[in-house]
């Protein structure tokens, strides 16, 4: 069983702020982490390997420093890591990212591909399904449990709005996983040692044997036009007075709204 896990290095969005004067992101000092959902994908891959054998490869596309994320994955226990980095990939939207990852993954080889549900910087949840499309394999999104897997078939629970579906597919298949699927392990000491020394394979634009119009900015149908701070309401009314007076005014508002 050859399992590939796609992981992304993201800024810890809980700490990102916007500078209201310039309307730009303030990323100074914000730590980079492995996208939290991708840790669950890594854990799922390691558990499958422990159960039925095989190898786990982590891959990321990003700037050279994304190598840190791969070393962390090695520390958790993956066998092998691939860094997909090239200036030609800069400015990729989800289409170009998924396309580039798909090219790389098909070079590496796979029976099962695992992605996180979404990346917390963009929150799009598109890269997984788009990749599956480029590889022409089925995918199952929002997987919250892997019930059964062998060399041929996988059966999972997929989260839906009002519960879940039990879904089966033949391999190869791509899954995107949600947090409920497992509790990611912490890196072991031995793993950390190995991560320090491990060699990380690099792939660039040339290795993918593709057209430059399909990657990076040129291969991205969407563009960010501008960013801005969320708006504030302007017609705000402050209810003033003693608590009794305030409550009287509230009752009037509720009556006007026909809530009583």
């Amino acid at each position: 069983m050859k399992i590939v896990v796609c992981i992304k290095q993201v800024p810890d969005t809980a700490e990102v702020r916007i500078n209201p004067e310039t309307n730009t992101l303030v990323r100074d000092g914000v730590p980079s982490i492995i996208n939290p959902y991708d840790l669950h994908a890594l854990e799922a891959a390691l558990q499958i390997k422990e159960k039925i054998g095989g190898t786990v490869t982590a891959i990321t596309m990003g700037p050279p420093q994304a190598e840190d994320a791969l070393r962390e994955a090695i520390a958790m226990g993956v066998d092998d890591a691939v860094l997909l980095t090239d200036r030609a990939f800069a400015g990729s939207d989800t289409w170009a990212t998924a396309y580039t990852l798909a090219r790389a993954v098909s070079r590496i080889g796979y029976d099962l591909i695992l992605c996180g549900k979404q990346a917390i910087d963009g929150d799009t949840a598109q890269v997984g399904p788009e990749m599956a499309e480029f590889l022409d394999i089925p995918h199952i999104a929002y997987v919250k449990a892997i019930d059964d897997i062998n060399d041929r078939v996988i059966r999972v629970k997929r989260m839906m709005e009002e519960g879940y579906d039990v879904v089966e597919a033949d391999l190869p298949v791509l899954l995107t996983v949600v947090k409920e699927i497992n509790e990611p392990r912490l890196p072991s000491l031995k793993g950390k040692m190995r991560a320090k020394k491990a060699e990380i394979r690099r792939l660039g634009f040339k290795d993918l044997e593709t057209d430059e119009h399909l990657v990076g900015l040129q291969g991205s149908p969407t563009q960010v036009k501008n960013i801005f701070a969320p708006e504030m309401k302007k017609d705000r009314k402050v209810l003033k007075g003693t608590p009794e007076e305030v409550v009287e005014q509230l009752i009037t508002v509720l009556k006007e709204m026909k809530c009583l």
């Binding site: 702020r17 917390i120 910087d121 036009k225």
Partner: peptide, 15 residues
């Protein structure tokens, strides 16, 4: 919204 809702972005698909 992007970056955990910290900012809003306008996206175009012009081509």
């Amino acid at each position: 919204p992007a970056f955990g809702g910290n900012i809003m972005a306008t996206i175009l698909c012009p081509r």
